[in-house]
Measured scan of single mutants.
Amino acid sequence: DELVREILGRCTCPDQFPMIKVSEGKYRVGDSSLLIFVRVLRSHVMVRVGGGWDTLEHYLDKHDPCRC
């Protein structure tokens, strides 16, 4: 939770990309009902993408309208 909030807090946009914790390891992202699975691996916040894992920073770079 703290690492996810820290990464989201780096955004300086007036309207921050919403990530709402639904349950342990599950977050709702953006304005959709899309759920992502998150885990911490060796101090990196990882997001389940397709059949693999990606860093939360890279995921936000691709999906946050402010960072695109």
Rank of each mutant, 00 (worst) to 15 (best):
L35W: 04
G9T: 07
V29A: 08
K62L: 13
K26T: 15
I36C: 15
V49G: 09
L34V: 14
R48V: 03
V29H: 10
L35H: 09
Y59T: 02
R42W: 08
V4L: 07
C11M: 03
D64Y: 01
C66G: 02
V49H: 11
R28D: 06
F37L: 15
L8Q: 08
S33Y: 07
G52H: 14
V45F: 01
Q16P: 15
V47W: 03
L34E: 15
I7H: 06
R42V: 04
R42Y: 10
S32D: 14
V49A: 13
D31P: 12
G52L: 13
I36M: 14
V47G: 02
V47N: 00
D1F: 05
D54H: 14
T12A: 06
V49M: 11
S43D: 14
L3S: 06
T55Q: 06
V40K: 15
L8E: 03
C11N: 00
V38K: 00
D31V: 10
R48K: 15
K26Y: 12
P65V: 01
R10W: 03
S43Q: 10
E24T: 05
P14W: 02
C13Y: 03
K26Q: 15
L35G: 07
T55C: 03
S43C: 13
K62G: 08
T55L: 10
D1A: 05
V40Y: 09
E2I: 15
I7L: 13
L41T: 13
I20D: 08
D61G: 10
S32C: 07
M46V: 08
E57T: 07
R42M: 11
V45A: 11
M46C: 09
L8A: 07
L56K: 01
L56D: 02
P18I: 06
G9P: 02
E57C: 00
G9C: 05
R42G: 15
H63Y: 11
S32V: 05
M46W: 11
P14V: 09
V22I: 12
H63G: 03
R48Q: 11
V47M: 05
L8H: 06
H58R: 11
F17L: 04
Q16S: 10
H44K: 13
M19S: 01
C66E: 04
D61A: 11
V29R: 08
L56G: 05
T55W: 02
Y59S: 05
R67E: 02
D31A: 12
C66K: 03
S33Q: 14
V4E: 06
C68L: 15
I36A: 09
M46S: 04
C13G: 04
L60C: 01
R39I: 08
Y27N: 05
L3H: 08
S43R: 13
K21Q: 09
I20C: 07
C68R: 12
F17V: 03
V38S: 05
Y59F: 15
T12N: 07
P14C: 06
R39L: 07
C66H: 02
R10E: 07
T12R: 11
K21I: 00
V38Q: 02
S23V: 04
D15F: 09
L34N: 14
L56F: 08
V38T: 07
L56A: 01
E24H: 10
V22S: 02
L56Y: 03
L8I: 13
G30S: 06
S23C: 12
L8C: 06
L3Q: 12
G25L: 01
L35K: 09
I20E: 12
D1P: 06
G25D: 12
F17S: 01
L35I: 14
I36Y: 06
Q16I: 07
R28M: 13
G52N: 12
E57S: 07
Y59K: 03
V38R: 03
V22M: 09
G25Y: 07
D64A: 00
P18N: 10
F37I: 13
K21C: 05
P65A: 05
L3M: 12
T55R: 11
G50W: 02
D15V: 14
R5C: 08
V40E: 10
T55F: 09
C66F: 01
E24Q: 13
V29K: 02
V22W: 00
F17T: 02
V4C: 03
V38Y: 04
M19K: 06
I7D: 04
S33A: 12
L8W: 01
K62M: 12
V45I: 11
R48I: 05
D61T: 10
T55N: 10
W53C: 06
C11S: 00
R10P: 02
S43P: 13
H44V: 15
V47R: 00
I36F: 07
S32W: 01
R28V: 10
R10D: 02
T12S: 10
G50I: 03
R5T: 12
G51C: 10
G9R: 09
C11D: 02
S33C: 11
D54Y: 15
D61Q: 11
P65S: 01
V22Q: 07
D31N: 14
V47E: 00
R67D: 02
T12E: 07
C11L: 01
G9K: 11
L41V: 15
H44W: 01
K62R: 12
C13R: 02
E2V: 06
M19G: 02
K62S: 09
H58I: 03
V38A: 06
R39Q: 12
R28L: 12
R42T: 08
Y27C: 01
D15I: 13
R67Y: 00
V22F: 06
G50C: 06
L41M: 14
P65C: 02
L60Y: 02
R67W: 00
C68W: 12
G52Y: 14
C13L: 03
D31G: 12
E2L: 13
G50L: 06
R10A: 08
G52E: 15
D15Y: 10
C66M: 03
K21W: 07
V49Y: 12
L35V: 12
R42P: 07
L8R: 03
E6D: 11
V49W: 11
M46F: 12
S33V: 04
K26A: 12
L56I: 06
V22R: 07
K21H: 07
I20M: 12
D31S: 12
P14N: 07
R28H: 05
R48C: 09
H58V: 04
M46Y: 14
F37K: 15
H63R: 10
M46K: 05
L56S: 04
T12V: 09
G9E: 13
I36Q: 00
R48Y: 10
Y59A: 01
D1H: 04
C13K: 00
G50K: 12
S43M: 07
P65D: 03
G52Q: 15
Y27R: 02
R48M: 09
K62T: 12
T12Q: 10
M46Q: 11
V29Y: 06
L41F: 10
P18D: 09
R48H: 11
E2Q: 13
V47H: 03
L34A: 15
S43K: 14
I20K: 12
G9H: 09
H58Q: 08
F37Y: 12
H58D: 11
T12F: 02
C68K: 08
G50Q: 12
S33D: 13
L60V: 04
E6W: 02
G25C: 09
E24R: 07
R39G: 09
I36D: 02
